[in-house]
Amino acid sequence: MSSISLKNVSVAYSNRKALKSVNADFPAGSLSMIIGLNGSGKTTLLKTVAGLVDYDGNVLIGGRLVDDVQPNLRGVSYVPQNNALIPSLKVQWNIALGLIDRVRDSRAVEKRVEEVAQTLGIEHLLNRYPKELSGGEARRVAIARALAFDSDIILMDEPELSVDVQTWQIILNVVLKTRRGDKTAMLATHNFEDLMPYVDVLCLLHEGNALFVGSPANLETENLPSDVRVWLGSAIRVDDLECDEGDFCVVFLDGREIYAGPRENHVRGYRRVLVLPKHATVDQKGVLKGRVIRRIGYHVGHIITVVEINGQELVVTSRETLPDGATVGLSVEKAIPLGGVR
């Protein structure tokens, strides 16, 4: 198992700084999630760890300085955004790419390819060429290639891209399996909703700056820039947690229950959740009462407003502009538990 540390890492493309003095530690065997708006530096951060971009500062893998180490010797596997499958190679060869120079025994290579193909449900695709695959299938092949490589560190850039719900579930299971295993996984993603409960380290990037690095349980959103709050929402404290026999849980905010996912997402003692703006809407029939603080932006035709509820700030969606100080009714559909589940 290998930890990853970034010390004052900066990356510049021409005149634009993609990463600005980023400091971050990702412990060995952890699942880390890099989130941020487009252009915030997520891909660049992954490429920095992989050694695929020139950077200032230091990167340590397993406590060893790797600034002068070539990508193929860093012990990382990488799934880029566009899969980058080699068009001239059949799927089985694409998966075996990392093993060609490393494993002499062809039976062992074949066995490894079959194993990972089975894990991702792509055994039937092994003899196809990349152009014969759908977007979701290509994604699974790219992930299979990374798994077959069997490195200590796996880096995935937006694994949710162009996959349907079923494929995403398969990928999610694979990611969680690597977490239970001995790999250190880093994912850059926009789909943080599903992964958040399982994440050990959350890295929030904004315009190349790391605004937050640490356990999601410690995430504070009140001082984040408005444009970040508009999509990220609010991390708040809730009162209680109850799970029914069907394993679904609810948390209580101001005495009202909010759906909070399955029991496995919760850790005893954690009472912090993330509420996305799309899950918190101003509704005159809403049973939660809040006081409007200020409008902070727009999102797909809706107005995003900060409302105070029970002494905490909640970012909500409304259809109309609300006067500051007004009392409004709110409906909160879902709360995403924050805090690593093991």
Binding site: L52, N72, S77, Y78, P80, Q81, A84, G98, F149
Partner: peptide, 11 residues
């Protein structure tokens, strides 16, 4: 990206 992949996976 394909060159990156080659750089990461090919020894």
């Amino acid at each position: 990206d394909q060159l990156d992949i080659a750089a990461v996976y090919c020894l």
